[in-house]
Amino acid sequence: MLNEKREFYLALSIQHLNFERRMNLKLRIWRQRDANSKGALVDYEVKVNPHMSFLEMLDELNETLQQKGQEPVAFDHDCREGICGSCNLFINGRPHGPMQTTTCQLHMRHFHEGETVVIEPWRAKAFPIVKDLIVDRSAFDRIVQAGGYISVNTGSARDANEIPIPKIIADEAFNSAACIACGACVAACKNASAMLFVGAQISKLALLPQGKAERKATGRENGGSDGCGGFWSLLQYRGLLG
């Protein structure tokens, strides 16, 4: 494990040599006025600093566009530390780009001079486009509303230590619960399926003793929700759930 990490850091220090220069990139960005309009890829040229994050690169583009009186590129973003799950760009053929991280944690040092970067929204029937790169991911909320909870009213809980949970189970449950609901699994899946998202919700509930009481009821509802199954998908888009 540590050796793998060392190699990762070694790779970083090599890339570090390229830091000084400004990079020229050609962007091809999906622009679409609203849900009902027709969209198209539009070309932009930007000069970037490799230290920038991908979203900061887009911020700069947007500032330039606004100064010219043009509308900024609409994209979802918020915490910019990889946890809120808002950012969702399909960059050069991959969700969140080349680094298996969230878009906000992707930095321009992973691109090279003169590269063409294609930026598209998530493509799935379940995620209709709202504007430009923004899509509607409320389908995820509806899945959780269908049974992704433990029915416990405020105040009715027993002492937190009353039910011991083996560390290994708690850790497993955490791994599933750590899903940030960005939708990359749907975007990456060739069938645009939400199996990984649903799987993460269900395995957390199934692992914890608290979730077991109503397992059958909630499981059934999830199984019946449109187009989403409960088992782990054929495609493991790993790294985004961890």
């Binding site: 909870y149 433990i150 416990v152 405020t154 105040g155 009715s156 809980a157 027993r158 002492d159 937190a160 230590n161 039910i163 011991p164 949970i165 083996p166 560390k167 708690a170 850790d171 449950a173 955490f174 619960a177 957390k204 509930l205 914890l208 608290q210 979730g211």
Partner: peptide
Amino acid sequence: VDIIDQCVAQGVPFAREYGGLL
């Protein structure tokens, strides 16, 4: 103290010791 009880009942996977306690 009530907050922790409530969160655990909701299925918040807090860190635990090997004995299964928080």
